[in-house]
Design a protein around this nucleic acid. Structure first.
Lengths: 252, 252
DNA sequence: TTACACTTTGACGCTGCGTAAAGGTCAAAC
DNA sequence: GTTTGACCTTTACGCAGCGTCAAAGTGTAA
């Protein structure tokens, strides 16, 4: 039985392009070329193609398949075992990924519903009002009217995405800070990471950053009972710890 | 704080090429370009890059990320949920693949160790001897000396790969035949597939195929007790079933 | 001034084909 | 004999996400 590209393609359920490609890379050469240049495949090639597709379904790269099929000395069992290792690694990574994606979804759902634009637009306003009511006076005294106004403007003009990121950053800071606190070392890697995150978080509100202002705010967190309560919520002493970490951070 | 490509790359742990690519596709544009054409990134870009890398780690395509980040109305929770679906599908496929790879490894290990070339080289000889001893006389009588010799030559010159394929084909035939037998219909899809597999299996031994010879062999399977025992091993009546299936197969 | 590290744009390469484009071939129908 | 229409051929771009030259300009320290 002899086959042209299309017939063989139909038999095997693959495209003619695939067959020409396999010829090109030397994976499956036709039995012969007829006088018009047509590729002609025979029974052996059908068998070989079956074997190729078998390995392909197992997810092996074509180059690997070619190695296996061209060299009879090639240890195909070992190749399959290696391949299984790869797949298991992939699976592990994939599982991790899925867990992370689910965490992210949960984090987003714990927060605001992001696509509810109406609610959101009101939300920023409310956040500012709240801010004003609670901390407005002190901050205005400490940093001046202009800075606070600029900060509020920045908050108002924030997009949903930026706001989402801010929330995420806040969460990450909170978590990192919690971990860092357990180490007890404000100069440690984790604590310094927390300080860096805090800086980034700040940069959402401030249009200019200075070490002094950063330190000052850190001190405020300790001095002001309301800030302190926020940070000490789960682990008392966290506000002081953050201040110390920021102190170290701003000294470098 | 301002960053050039390399500084930002080091900060984020990515290459400068990646940053230029992200600029090119409009995913992350620098804050400004300096007089010499250098890309200069600011704090906002660092934040945005963090967000980008966050999504990238979750395995989202850059285009998707761009959509999410550029359009504040974009429902990122939905995007993540879609993405989770994709990942779960991938996981399912991957699990299937792993099972198949493991099956294949087991199948290979049930058979001969393929990379033991020495053993194998002897193996073909022994297979022929065995063949000769058991069936040689009848087959020679039925099909003539030449055909048998050609068949034996073919067997001897077989590569490890071809032999492996032959074994696999035999296994597949055996399984398919078992399934087909349960249906009880020699003209059914499964039985016809078994007949086709049997033909392919034959083509390893025969250098020319004819329907008549195929039928003749099928009849031999029923008439000869030793062949019959081989096929009837697990389900009595299989030899007759195969003969009937081949009869139908060779009539089309 | 020279060396050296850094930057730019431009372009090819990787996998496994899909998808034209531009042109020959073959069998059947007119 | 010719015209369809279904085949076949080679050539080549496109895809994702960069890695990796190459050629040429820029910044800075010795």
């Amino acid at each position: 039985m002899e086959y042209t590209v299309q017939k063989l393609g139909q038999l095997a359920g693959i495209s003619t392009r695939t067959l020409r490609y396999y010829d090109e890379i030397g994976l499956l050469k036709p039995a012969r070329i007829n006088s018009s240049g047509y590729r002609i495949y025979g029974q052996q090639e059908v068998n070989r193609l079956q074997q190729i597709l078998f390995y392909r379904e197992l997810g092996l790269h074509l180059e690997k398949i070619r190695d296996i099929m061209n060299d009879p000395n090639f240890d195909s069992t070992k190749a399959l075992k290696d391949h299984r290792e790869n797949l298991l690694n992939k699976k592990e990574q994939l599982d991790l990924l899925i867990v992370n994606v689910e965490k992210s979804i949960a984090a987003q759902e714990r927060g605001i519903t992001m696509n509810d634009q109406e609610k959101f637009e009101g939300f920023n306003e409310k956040l500012i009002e709240e801010n004003e009511k609670v901390y407005g006076k002190e901050i205005r005294e400490k940093y001046g009217e202009d800075a606070v106004n600029r900060s509020n403007d920045k908050l108002k003009s924030m997009t949903v995405q930026e706001h989402e990121e801010l929330t995420r950053l806040g969460d990450e800071l909170y978590e990192t800070l919690g971990e860092a606190f357990k180490t007890g070392d404000p100069a440690g890697v984790l604590a310094q990471k927390a300080a860096e995150l805090h800086k980034q978080w700040l940069c959402f509100y401030w249009d200019s950053y200075s070490r002094e202002a950063h330190r000052g705010l850190a001190q405020l967190y300790v001095d002001d009972e309301r800030f302190k309560q926020h940070y000490d919520k789960s682990q008392p002493g966290t506000a002081e710890f953050l201040r110390d970490a920021i102190h170290v951070y701003t000294s470098n």
